[in-house]
Amino acid sequence: MIQEIKKIIEQLSEREARSLLFQHFLQIQLLQKKSYSESEFAENMKKEYQELLQYSSKQKQQPYHTIHIVFGDSAAGSLKIALPSEEKVIRFSDLFSIGPVNQLHTEEGLIQRKKWLFLHINLDEETTHTYIEEIVQTLSEIKAIPEHIPIYIWTANNAHEQTGARLVLQILKEKKNDIRLLNISTAYQHLWPNIIPVHTGELGHDKLNRIYKTYKNEQPLTEQLRNKLAEEWEKLSKTTEVLRIWENDQIKSVSENYFDTFIIEQLRYLHIKQMKLDFMKSARLIGEVLGNTDQYVGDAFFEYRVRELILQGIFDIEGVPKAMRFYSVKLKGVF
């Protein structure tokens, strides 16, 4: 029930949330001034709770004429602001460039992926607890899209969104919907030359709105291309690697230590910049790595690899590695 309430609150607009908070503070103030009793306060809160549940139910039933599928919470938040209210956004909160995707469209595949993430990536307890439930709900929403509704899948030139797009196209393989891929990397380069964003979550709602208005009437994917991309998912779903990169316009599965040498080089560079050689906050190192790679695998994966380099004896550690802000590292033997 707690998760249901949280989802309802997340669906509120900023204006709606502010109004609700104001009403609660106002009622508390009236209670303190003895303007009404605690029993009246409790009854009002119960009434508001029931109204909120009813409002959420009505929102779910609201008709829509277009579906947008996006990969990432930040991208979904910006897209919801950018689009008309009658166009629905379905989001995956996962990061598909990391972790196993072997048979991910099956229950066993989801269980294995959750296990790997739990063992290697620093996730908050709530995310771990609801992981499979949220993925299954998202997959169910996509499968339930009526066939007359056009679908837009938002992607960029990275393994995360490209992998997600292929998973979605496999799910929709038997559907007759018009499906369009909106690649923000390509679109951005045409509209604002010389800059290529790595992932959709980098863009604000104004840029997404401009891209959508410019490319919304592009031709839908042909059946041939849809089948090709769905087949690429089928091949991906048979792989065992836990890291994917985007190279030469293709998803490439690589070893999980693929970035280790690059991480070591970035720490060596930061040591050179230090006035006095000392331990470096791991968050600082990971920020440097993120800023100097054109791949999108997320800070949590790089933090996992930093911990692995510590275990291998390549980095020394100072602090407790429960989160990147709590410990520092240095190259072994630099001083």
Rank of each mutant, 00 (worst) to 15 (best):
K176Y: 03
P150L: 07
Y55F: 13
L31E: 01
L30V: 00
D206G: 01
E247K: 15
K115Q: 15
H199V: 05
N248V: 03
H271R: 02
E10D: 15
S19Y: 12
T261G: 03
A165M: 15
P146E: 12
F41R: 06
K173C: 02
Y64N: 09
E288K: 14
T130S: 13
T163S: 14
E38C: 01
S140F: 04
E38D: 05
Q61M: 13
E303Y: 02
E308V: 13
A156Y: 08
N227R: 09
S237Y: 00
I111A: 11
H120S: 13
N177F: 07
L52K: 08
I310K: 04
E126M: 10
K228L: 14
D249I: 00
H271L: 11
I67S: 11
K228H: 14
E231A: 13
E108V: 12
V289Y: 06
M45P: 00
S97N: 10
F118E: 15
L270I: 12
S74Q: 09
S255F: 04
K60W: 09
D94G: 05
F301Q: 10
P220K: 06
D260Q: 08
P220G: 02
E202F: 01
K46Q: 15
M324D: 01
N248G: 12
L208A: 04
V89W: 09
T106R: 09
S185F: 09
D206Y: 13
K46C: 09
E51V: 01
S37M: 01
A82F: 10
K114N: 11
G201N: 05
Q61D: 07
F262N: 03
Y212F: 15
I142L: 03
Q3I: 11
V289P: 03
A187G: 02
D73G: 02
Q295L: 05
D278Y: 01
H24Q: 06
Q224M: 05
V289R: 00
N227E: 14
V101D: 01
E134D: 13
M324A: 02
F41N: 11
D299P: 02
I98F: 06
K176N: 13
I171K: 05
Q137G: 00
L83F: 08
L119F: 00
I196S: 12
Q274H: 03
L21Y: 12
H190W: 03
L117Y: 03
R18C: 10
I8H: 02
G291Q: 11
L123I: 09
G333P: 06
I149Y: 01
L31Q: 02
E141P: 02
Y55D: 15
Q112S: 12
Q29R: 11
F301L: 08
L181G: 01
M45S: 13
D260E: 12
D124V: 02
A17P: 00
S93G: 14
Q103W: 05
I179R: 00
V198W: 00
V70Q: 04
V242T: 15
H199P: 02
